Simulated scan of single mutants.
Amino acid sequence: MNHFENTSILVPFDFSEDAQNAIETAISIAGDNDNITVLHVVDPSQLYGFDDNGGYELGGGLGTARYSTAQVRSINEQHQYAALEAMQDLFGDSLHQGIQFATIVDDPADGISKYASKHAIELIVIPSHGRTGVRPLVMGSVAEKVVRLAHCPVLVLRD
């Protein structure tokens, strides 16, 4: 008996090999691909020229770019569409038939957690990219933040 069979599963996807492996893990435990949603979160700090911690490092671009609301909306929509199309192309084979694909624009950990809550997700399957050193202590990883923020169980996959 599979405990997660017929459970709605969310798999955050950043186009990495680890994320692809997370999708395969979700397929193996879901029982039905229709129960799986693959979510790509478009990080707005990356879209607008900030570095990966929101632009607070020297030369990160904080305050150097000004965008109108219409420009921001257009940039967001373009990146969401491109990510959605890329995921559908990447997983267009019969093995991935039935999987749902979604994109949102948000901070990755917050976006994953909010999406899971809003869509009554019952399990999040996320890879741990296994960062080491001082940086994860200061920044924290997306997987660690999702574990803290999620309303449902989180399966963190290690290498």
Rank of each mutant, 00 (worst) to 15 (best):
I75R: 07
G61C: 06
H3V: 15
A83M: 00
Q97C: 09
V147R: 02
V156N: 00
H119E: 10
L62N: 06
P136W: 03
V134D: 08
F50C: 10
Q97K: 13
S16G: 06
Q100I: 07
G140T: 06
H79G: 07
P136I: 06
V138S: 02
Y56E: 13
N53D: 15
L58A: 14
R158W: 06
A143V: 05
G92R: 11
R148C: 04
G130C: 08
S74M: 11
G133D: 05
R66W: 14
E24T: 11
V11H: 05
R148L: 07
A19K: 07
I124N: 03
N53L: 15
I99Y: 06
Y67F: 13
G111K: 04
Q88W: 09
I75W: 02
S68T: 15
G133N: 00
L84Y: 06
H96S: 08
Q80I: 03
I75V: 11
V156L: 05
I27V: 10
A65D: 12
P12I: 02
T37G: 09
N53W: 14
G60V: 00
D18K: 14
Y81T: 15
E57R: 12
T7N: 09
G49H: 02
D18L: 13
R158E: 11
V42M: 01
S45N: 12
Y67K: 04
V146W: 05
G31I: 03
H151L: 00
D106S: 10
D159S: 13
E17W: 08
P12H: 02
F4M: 15
G111D: 01
G61R: 03
R135V: 10
E5I: 14
M139P: 09
I112S: 08
Q100M: 05
E17T: 08
G61V: 05
G111H: 05
G59T: 00
I29Q: 05
I126G: 02
V142E: 06
G60R: 00
A22Q: 06
H96W: 04
F4I: 12
H79L: 08
V42I: 12
V134W: 11
V138Y: 10
A82W: 03
V11D: 08
E122C: 02
Y48P: 11
